[in-house]
Nucleic acid binder design. Structure first.
Length: 285
DNA sequence: AAACCTCCCTGGGGGC
DNA sequence: TGCCCCCAGGGAGGTT
């Protein structure tokens, strides 16, 4: 389930290798992802200048345009060689070469996505942020634009559950179901509480918790970077120590009372009824 | 505008 | 053991 930390870990694994390489081939084995795959021939011969991330979108920049890749919920990218056997659900390849280097073998950036919720789209304009998928996105959670004051302001007048609000990509990008639940636990806030009921202090705690849980996960992801390049296995997504997600009816790691499960906005949400009082006091974990 | 619902897809797990 | 059903997930797009 790639959330922002997994996408960033993927980016860091691929970027140093892909930057400066030339696209020498495009293979679309299954064009029916979330939207029909867009990978026009104008990309052939183009050099990849950089690999960036916006929310959960990976952006491959070239002077001819930008390739926008989303991993959906089951997607992964890996770097393989010519003779690497195809796996089921290997839908898309970008063939890359360090052309001039003697004896260099072409390699492939290969997208695997069993559930096909991901996408590969192309943006021809100069500024990829103008793309319809990106232009309305909210702030990056790990940037200086995201802080308690910003979150507090965005919660004013909003009756929606705070968990839904922090998962709203128009407010802040990259916070999925797992990290939303974990951040609310760290901040001591009940997931179903109306966003507008948060105090400024609670919003401060929550913004800090979101930054903490995401950056901790990225830090752990760093240990598996080697798995993204030169491996024919799946990227080894790190195992986060989860406090609440998937732990309903198990004892809270802080107070040992049983964690509760509640469906909020069609998403399962686990919380500790004792630690998460809605007041925003942080349990020490 | 905000809130709420539906849909896309497949693999994995639980129940029988 | 095998089958069926249900669930998980991001996020666009529709409806209220």
């Amino acid at each position: 389930m790639p959330e922002l930390p997994e996408v960033e870990t993927t980016r860091r694994g691929i970027e140093p290798w892909a930057r400066g390489q030339t696209i020498t081939g495009i293979e679309v084995r299954n064009p029916s992802l979330r939207w029909p795959v867009e990978a026009p021939d104008v990309l052939l011969g183009q050099r990849i200048d950089a690999v960036n991330r916006r929310g959960k979108y990976l952006l491959f920049h070239s002077s001819a345009g930008h390739l926008i890749v989303h991993l959906g919920m089951s997607g992964s990218l890996r770097v393989v060689s010519q003779d690497t056997a195809l796996l089921k659900h290997d839908h898309f390849d970008l063939r890359l070469s360090v052309d001039a280097r003697q004896g260099a073998k072409d390699q492939f950036l290969r997208l695997n996505d069993p559930r096909r919720f991901g996408c590969v789209l192309f943006h021809a304009g100069d500024n990829v942020d103008d793309h319809w998928l990106l232009k309305n996105l909210g702030v990056e959670p790990l940037s200086n634009d995201f802080h308690g004051d910003y979150l507090f302001a965005r919660t004013r007048g909003r009756k929606v559950a705070i968990k839904n609000l922090i998962m709203d990509s128009k407010v802040v990008v990259g916070v999925g179901n797992i990290y939303a639940a974990e951040a609310l636990f760290l901040a001591g806030i009940r997931p179903a509480v109306a966003a507008q009921r948060l105090t400024r202090a609670a919003a401060e705690n929550l913004a800090d918790a979101i930054k903490r849980v995401l950056s901790d996960a990225i830090r752990q992801g760093g240990t598996t970077l080697r798995d993204f390049v030169g491996s024919d296995g799946k990227p080894g997504y790190f195992k986060q120590r989860l406090n609440v997600y998937g732990r309903e009816n198990k004892p809270c790691r802080v107070c040992e009372c049983l964690l509760k499960l509640k469906t909020i906005g069609q998403r399962s949400s686990v919380y500790c009824p004792n630690c998460q009082t809605g007041q925003g006091f942080s349990p020490v974990v």
